[in-house]
Design a protein around this nucleic acid. Structure first.
Lengths: 187, 187
DNA sequence: TCCTGTTTTTGATAATTGTCAAATCGGCCC
DNA sequence: GGGCCGATTTGACAATTATCAAAAACAGGA
């Protein structure tokens, strides 16, 4: 829990009372490699903080899996679409490693929003940052070649390559496993 | 202003007082076609509602313009990255038509957040929706061919094609103008 | 209306990436 | 350690898209 609270501070500091109320809502959960945190068709009614481990979010489209994000320790995780709209999820979330996370339900979170303006502000700021990151990623994908994307990934997030099977990474980059394998060989 | 207030209601209804305070902060602005709402390098310290007209956001990368979004009437507009972080913008925002918009400064908006919890909630919800839309667009771009992307655009936003030069649309789809021109011919 | 500069189209060719199939590698269970 | 299954690599080929150059279409200003 300590690492979560420290992480929150980097976005917006909240009062002791708010921290206490938040802590009361958090539930610790443990999962094994390959478990699913969420399957498509179900509503995602929790917001998570990944304390330790790794996950991926993927869509099942035309019999193909499209991995569109990875998460590692000290990040927030949810099926954003499903969590915020309350509609069934179109994405799946699966563990790449044994993991530990903290969960809060939508109901509890909205309750905290009502009780503590500052918690809603904190979350608003978190959303902002996540939006900006997504935008960056998108623009990159739009004008870079597969090789450039891969090399950028190598520089910026070398840990991904050690912890994630190549097939997922290629999907994440929007290319086939064969193409990624060939790009890799060239270096 | 009426259309803005109506639009806000579709996200989250706020009190008469909050509406009044918000209205006091809003400034109406008019621009001509080809004007810039924002140039890269400057800080975007306003959040806008586009009442009438059209704009595009684009990056200048390696001497090329990468258009990554369009906006039409009844949408919110800003350089999200710059507005939320306060850093100089890396994107440009330009008018595609003569336009009318309402503006609020960051300072005024954060002031409203402090004064009215409900306004911060409203904006939090707006951010959520915009995030989800961006995510959808991104995933689509990742697994569809250029022709599919174009046809989807035709179905979902036919107005874009009538109001935006082809060159901007091709950039938006992540392909060259030549390729888009050829896709178009096939139909 | 004509001129001019920009946008779009067309053509030829090259580069990039995808597809399908087979071979190889690597981890895991017995 | 042997066998098996899935993941990764390799190869041959096809499809898609980019690039460069030139022609045609279009739009705005004089």
């Amino acid at each position: 829990m300590e690492s979560l609270l420290n992480h929150l501070k980097t976005y917006y500091p909240i009062s002791r009372e708010a921290i206490g109320a938040l802590a009361d809502c958090l539930q610790e959960k443990t999962y094994a490699k390959s478990d699913f945190l969420l399957k498509q068709g179900r509503v995602c009614d929790h917001f998570y903080f990944l304390q330790h481990g790794a996950l991926r979010g993927f869509y099942n489209i035309n019999d193909k899996e499209i991995t569109h994000w990875f998460a590692f320790e000290n990040t927030f995780v949810s099926s954003f679409h499903s969590f915020t709209t309350g509609q069934p999820s179109i994405e799946n979330i699966q563990f790449l490693e044994g993991s530990i996370l903290w969960a809060i339900s939508r109901k509890q979170l909205t309750g905290l929003f009502d009780q503590f303006h500052e918690i809603e502000r904190l979350v608003r700021i978190i959303y902002e940052r996540y939006y900006v990151r997504l935008e960056e990623r998108y623009v990159n994908a739009q004008f870079k070649t597969a090789a450039e994307l891969y090399n950028n990934l190598l520089e910026q997030s070398p840990h991904i390559l050690e912890r994630v099977p190549l097939g997922y990474i290629s999907s994440y980059l929007g290319i086939t496993p064969e193409t990624l394998s060939r790009i890799r060989k060239q270096r």
